[in-house]
Design a protein around this nucleic acid. Structure first.
Length: 126
RNA sequence: UAAGUAAAUUGCCUUAUCGCUGUUUCGAUUUAUUGAGAUGGAGGAAAGUCCGGACACCGUAGUGCAACAUAGUGGCUAAUAACCACCAGCCGUGAGGUUAGGAAAAGUGCAACAGAAAGUAUAUACAGGUCAUGCUGUAGUGAAACCAGGUAAACUCUAUGUGGUGCAAUGUCAUGUAUACCAACGUUUGAGGGCGGCACGCUCGAUUGUUGGAGGGUAGGCAGCUAAAGUGUAUUGGUAACAAUGCACGCAGAUAAAUGAUAAGGGUUACGCUUUUUGCGUGAUACAGAAUCCGGCUUAUAGAUUUACUUAGAUA
RNA sequence: CGGGGUGUAGCGUAGCCCGGUUAUCGCGCCACGUUUGGGACGUGGAGGCCGCAGGUUCGAAUCCUGCCACCCCGA
């Protein structure tokens, strides 16, 4: 797996997203929150991921786009070290629930924490 | 030089590494993926959605009323309530700014306080006049006091205009669900429904039979989709808005929604130190992200630049 | 893409249709009284440029226009 985040890896199906929010579990490391669901989809990638920033906390589209781009960038660079060995397929949605504009370094640290927490939760039953 | 008025322009750049997305060429597997190369990838407001169109569908898109909008004159435009010019009113010493700027002699209403009186009223005081009388003038109140008064961003009248819905329009493809659907003809003969709000008018039509056809919704793919009332520039016509002609360019198309991240260097500018230039340090570098496409309006905006003009002062 | 509503004192509201004293009521706030003290009660008081900017008018919270913020609805 390379440092890519192409169309195939994006979570795009409306059905799947509805299912994710209604049935999925979540872990959070402020200001990030990960909603995930063990599911099956047809593409060969093991994880489909979406990113979301609330309009309530950031009013202008420029701010929201900026944060989403940062999140995508960090995800792209770091996913390799955590998700390469997954045996089942997952759908992810990463939410930014903070209220202030972050920097890349902050997000990188928080996202690593988040994925470690996720790995623990998945590997240990319940 | 200072203060100001009006108009216009601009909206940081380069390199490296790693990514996203459209188009296209070649190769591979194989019929939708992958690899390599080439090339394109946010704005002056993309925003608000306040006006006007293009385009698409709806076949009663008919009539009248109602409703809404507009309101000096002329021009311009695909079109408009926008834009341009001029006239008039108001504001400003001025450059300039601003105005929903038709009708009160069709009718209805309204006018606090003050005042005798606010539209069927003429009181009081003074002066004048008359046989006599609000018959005449002045004073005082008020925004307005008899004059066919004021007020129409009060109802209203006049003139002009407006069919509706919006790219989630609309067309199409395949998968599964499903027979609940539609059309024609015949019978029955009118409950009820539809056509933006009302009336007229128009139209569908409960039940049953025959024949024929495929229809509907959900999530998705494709088309619509970006070559256009296009952009830049020059000339000509016009006071101007704008128009015509020549030349050049070929200019984003995402869809849980691309146009990015990091590092280095350089611009511009403010402050401090040094102070002849300059150099060093610390900051600042805005508002903001296409979603069918155009024309205008409105709002946000660090900083920089240009042009014309006004007033005041100084010098010649 | 289209449609509708709201904004008045710290909070919740009336007045707006149909213009006329810088504006109503309740809770809260302040002072005084009452009480040994507090609460409750009584009396008095403060607090508003009616979201912002223009316009119409003699006069605007009210009418008109343009903005801003918030909320809701439809496809």
């Amino acid at each position: 797996m390379a440092f890519t985040y192409s169309k195939k890896e994006k979570l795009k199906s409306k059905k799947l997203i509805d299912q994710l929010f209604s049935e999925g579990q979540s872990v959070s490391v402020y200001p990030l929150r990960l909603v995930f669901l063990n599911t099956t989809h047809n593409d060969e990638t093991s994880v489909k991921t979406g990113i979301s920033v609330s309009k309530r906390n950031f009013k202008t589209a420029v701010d929201r786009n900026r944060i989403k781009r940062l999140l995508r960038e960090v995800y792209r660079l770091n996913k390799d070290s955590y998700f390469n060995n997954l045996t089942t397929q997952y759908a992810f949605m990463i939410l930014y629930i903070g209220k202030e504009k972050p920097t890349l370094a902050q997000i990188e640290m928080k996202m690593n924490n988040l994925f470690e927490k996720f790995s623990k939760k998945v590997s240990s039953p319940n």
